[in-house]
Amino acid sequence: MGRAKITIVGAGNVGATCAHWCAAAELGDIVLLDIPAAGDMPKGKALDLMQSSPIMGFDSNIVGATDYAASANSDVVVITAGIPRKPGMSRDDLLATNAKIVGSVAEQVKATSPNAIVIVVSNPLDAMVQRALQVTGFPPARVFGQAGVLDTARYRTFLAMELGVSVEDVSALLMGGHGDTMVPMPSCTSVGGIPIRRLLAEDKLQAIVQRARDGGAEIVSLLKTGSAYYAPAAATAQMVEAIVRDKKRIIPVAAYCDKEYGVGGYYVGVPAILGAKGVEKIVELELDPEERKAFDHSVSAVKSLVATMNELMSKA
């Protein structure tokens, strides 16, 4: 059996670090792809990473490219391409620019890797994955977004730090859109099997929930000139692993929900079984009234974001 072929579109910090994690875990052969204006940069990063393989002891073929021909017939395509929000740029400016970029990538993926599973990482995430679906026309089970794994990792990290325990023993779930309206689920959070509310006072728990929501912004404020990439890349690599190794992991995914949770045809973070076919099943939970209210609010924000994107794209 041949190795999986994994293409990562966008050779910036998130994309290159994702390639690093995937190669180190020997998830497959990797194409690190960027736009022609990037010149030989993707080739340089790929070669540098390849030269680390004898030291770290992994076997993955890693190539850099600016031509989608190199990515042909990929099994998994990760889309990290896009620009960060810059000073003076409105939210709509970012939305319109990245929707064009993701749409262009999706067109190329459709043409060169028609059977690929697509993981979108670009922001604003919930709208960008919707755009990728619109352009590729792939089955929704093969197009989804990475956000919940990252957000949950931040939540788990802060809980472990507060309690002074191993992160491995913290199990948690977040749902909803990626951003200010994400919905951490204390009812689905435990440490070593112990419900979190038995270990933490409510005010401390809510402070950690809010810190998880602000996790990306906190890192931006510390870095000053960039945004997070180690954890986003690791989260994406975990999803790639679930697919190429058919692990059937239940993890939070920005998945296409129609009848599920009454969403009605949008991408939103929900627990899902991830395996070789992509999103193989969405797990529906019984939400308590408070959780349902927060989730519905988050879904409304996603719908508004997508509506704005569709309007901007219709004028483009």
Rank of each mutant, 00 (worst) to 15 (best):
M1R: 09
M1S: 06
A4Q: 08
K5Y: 08
T7A: 03
N13V: 12
G15H: 11
T17M: 14
C22I: 15
C22Y: 08
L27E: 01
D34L: 05
A38Q: 04
L47E: 15
L49I: 02
M50P: 11
Q51V: 02
P54Q: 15
I55Q: 07
F58H: 10
F58C: 04
S60H: 00
S60K: 00
N61R: 03
T66W: 10
A69R: 14
A69I: 13
A72W: 07
A72F: 05
N73H: 10
V77M: 04
A81Y: 04
P84V: 06
R85A: 03
K86T: 08
D92W: 00
L94N: 07
L94T: 09
K100R: 11
I101T: 15
I101V: 15
K110E: 11
S113E: 09
N115P: 01
I119V: 14
V120W: 06
V121M: 09
M128G: 10
M128T: 09
G137C: 03
F138W: 03
A141M: 02
R142N: 03
V143C: 05
Q146D: 15
G148Y: 07
V149L: 08
R154L: 12
Y155K: 01
T157G: 00
L159N: 01
M161Y: 05
V165E: 06
V170T: 06
S171Y: 07
M175G: 01
M185D: 04
S190L: 08
P195H: 05
L200V: 09
K204T: 10
I208R: 12
A212V: 06
R213T: 15
R213K: 13
D214K: 12
D214M: 11
G216T: 14
E218Y: 00
S221V: 02
K224P: 03
T225M: 12
T225L: 11
S227C: 08
A228K: 13
A228T: 14
Y229P: 04
P232V: 11
A233M: 13
A233G: 11
A235M: 13
A237V: 05
A242P: 12
A242W: 04
D246H: 03
R249K: 13
R249C: 14
I250K: 04
A254I: 15
Y256M: 03
V263H: 07
G265F: 10
V268G: 04
G269N: 10
P271Y: 09
P271C: 05
I273Y: 02
D288N: 15
P289M: 08
E291H: 09
R292P: 13
R292D: 15
K293M: 10
D296A: 13
V299H: 06
S300Q: 08
K303H: 13
S304R: 00
L305S: 05
M309T: 14
E311N: 07
